[in-house]
């Protein structure tokens, strides 16, 4: 059998379906436990619904980016593996690189050479072996890190809030900076389209926050509107490289 026929075969759909089902199961389980706990500590149903709606709306844009990333995986490692890898552990950036590292070892350049069964197996094994480190470390360090955090805050909710607030701004600052600062070997530092998009995203968000301060209903759409508007304008405007 040809490697791509194997990659897109029914047994592979079943094999990849199991991990996908696990991730769905985890989400449903954690959501139901968190909803129960919300009820127990007296969060209103309305508050919970607002959170669900906001997350659902926010999810759509990034999901499309992941979907477009899956396109390249469909061609290289087949539908089932691409579908599973981007549902479980994986990230758009990681999977392509890991698959390429695997096939390179047996002389197949991903996307250029035809896939062989051995190269396919190399790709899948490498993707799996190189990604489980995240889950293992995260899973076994979470309660330890919680204890350390507890020691630092002394159980104070105010300090917990300060920590999360400081961390989230720091985190998004580093994401934005990674898009603002771009360089390559030919021209050195340059003003990229990504930088334009990040700046416009911030600008449109500022405008949306002003508008939604008056029209409360709009606020859960703020992020989606700002990011789509910034994306379109970045694509149209002749600024940035």
């Amino acid at each position: 059998m040809d490697a791509m026929q194997i990659a897109n075969s029914i047994p592979m759909w079943v094999a990849c379906g199991i991990p996908v089902c696990l991730i769905i199961f985890q989400s449903l389980l954690f959501m139901s436990k968190a909803r129960q706990a919300s009820k127990d500590i007296g969060l209103s149903d309305d508050t919970v619904k607002k959170a669900i709606r906001a997350s659902a709306i926010t999810s759509i844009g990034p999901s499309l980016v992941i979907l477009s990333g899956m396109l390249s995986l469909l061609v290289t490692v087949g539908g089932p593996v691409g579908w599973m890898r981007l549902s479980l552990i994986g990230s758009v950036m990681f999977e392509g690189i890991a698959a390429g590292i695997g096939t390179q070892q047996v002389g197949v350049t991903l996307g250029a050479d035809p896939m062989t069964p051995t190269a396919l197996a190399m790709a899948v094994w490498t993707m799996v072996l190189c990604s489980i480190g995240w889950v293992i470390f995260a899973t076994f360090s979470a309660s330890r890190m919680e204890k350390i955090q507890h020691k630092i805050t002394g159980g104070s909710t105010k300090r917990m809030g300060i920590i999360s607030g400081a961390a989230i701004v720091a985190c998004f600052s580093s994401f934005v900076a990674s898009h603002l600062i771009k360089a390559n070997a030919d021209v050195g530092f340059y003003f990229s389209k990504n930088a334009v998009a990040a700046i416009l995203g911030a600008l449109f968000m500022f405008i949306m926050m002003k508008i939604s301060a008056k029209h409360k209903k709009l606020s859960e759409w703020n992020l989606t509107i700002a990011m789509v508007a910034a994306m379109i304008l970045t694509a149209i405007l002749p600024i940035g490289a």
Partner: peptide, 20 residues
Amino acid sequence: VGALNYLLPALFGALLMQFG
């Protein structure tokens, strides 16, 4: 597909504004 490349930087810029 090309425009989708700009969605994530736009998202991060917007989020930084929201929280910053």
